[in-house]
Amino acid sequence: MGASAKPLLQPDNLFHPLAQSPIPAIREKHVYIAEHGCCPVCQSKPPTYECPDCGYPTHCSEEHYLQDKANHDKVCGWLKETNMDDHDLRSGRRFREFDFPKKQPNENTINLANWDTLLYTRGFPSLVSQHAIHHITKLLTYPLTIGSLLHPLSPYNLKNALTVEGLRSLTALRTTLGEHSQMSTRKDVIFDPIRVFIVGARAEAMLPPHVYSQLAFMFPHSPFHIYFVGPEATPPPGNDSTHLGVSLQMMLRWERKLFHEFYHEVTPFDPYRDVFFLFSPGLGYPFARSLWRPTLELMIQSQCPIFVTAYNQSDMNADVATIEEDHKDTFDWLVKPTENTFRSLKKEINLLDLTETSQANWYVYGIRGKKYEVTFTGE
């Protein structure tokens, strides 16, 4: 938008019933919900009546809306928040929250206690609205979830979800990161990169590449190679290459293959510099379970850390139950299932069930293949 262009919507004009929205894409949401949903009262007619408080089509008539209002009120606030987030994102205003800071000054220490302290100590612009916070955390949840687990100032410790095995495993990675820092003045040393394998990558593979630079800025002396692996690992629009050097520190690579088709290209794995991330993979879904089982077996055999996120508690519970059943006695817990400090703060609504909400990377947990000690008994 040009400097003199006028925003389509002003900050005090972000609430609109979906069917009356000035944004075509939001009007289409009303059509989709009406075509694929049904009134929760009669369970037969399409939900075409829009709640005056949240703007979503929720019931077939005002009569059924009023009859079911006590139930709807439980989610009405979420729906209104999402409605206004969507209008703000398409308002045409200047998004100052996306003016990301560059390198971290040496004299400033980042604080990973929560989003507020992280954004402040990294020097992000002051965020004047909840909508801005929702937008920026939805983008940054992926690199910050990775960084918050690897960083020595991680919010996860032995009092908060981290296990003894987890401390040992992360210490290996942090030792490598520390060596990079200690030897950063040596011009004759070339460091092997920290390799982050994002397996089953989808939306996170399509983020603007500079978003992942925020991970590198947390570790200013360490090179990173990020691999997006999976059939849906598509580069962002405008990037036709499967390899991209974002900076001297950060290399991105996209591989539209199943992990077992690709991993021979990057073996052997090293627990001191390799780590796996699975962002909301849906391990517990019946149709995905058989596909994920051999992939997880390979990752578990590597004995490198594997961190997994989930978008709500039921999703996490299904994943954990599947892992414990399919891979029992082969792994140790590194991070017990817990709420992710750097989850997205923007709520997402299931358009097929408006009572179901989620947040990207809401929960996180970590595992690693068991270490087996070899004992020589002799004779």
Rank of each mutant, 00 (worst) to 15 (best):
T234P: 00
P237A: 11
N239F: 12
S241C: 08
T242W: 02
H243V: 04
H243Q: 08
L244Q: 10
L244D: 05
G245R: 09
G245N: 12
G245S: 13
S247A: 02
L248V: 06
Q249C: 04
Q249L: 11
Q249A: 10
Q249I: 04
L252Q: 04
L252V: 01
R253G: 03
R253K: 08
W254A: 05
W254P: 00
E255F: 03
R256I: 06
R256Y: 03
L258F: 14
F259V: 12
F259K: 11
E261H: 15
F262N: 03
E265P: 00
T267L: 15
T267A: 15
F269S: 07
V275S: 03
F276T: 10
F277Y: 09
F277T: 01
F277N: 01
F277Q: 00
L278T: 05
L278C: 13
L278R: 01
F279I: 01
P281K: 01
G284I: 06
G284E: 08
Y285E: 15
Y285R: 11
P286A: 07
A288C: 09
S290Q: 13
R293W: 02
R293Y: 03
P294A: 05
T295H: 02
L296S: 07
L296T: 09
L296Q: 05
L296N: 06
E297D: 11
L298V: 10
M299V: 10
I300E: 06
Q301S: 14
S302G: 09
Q303W: 04
Q303E: 13
C304F: 04
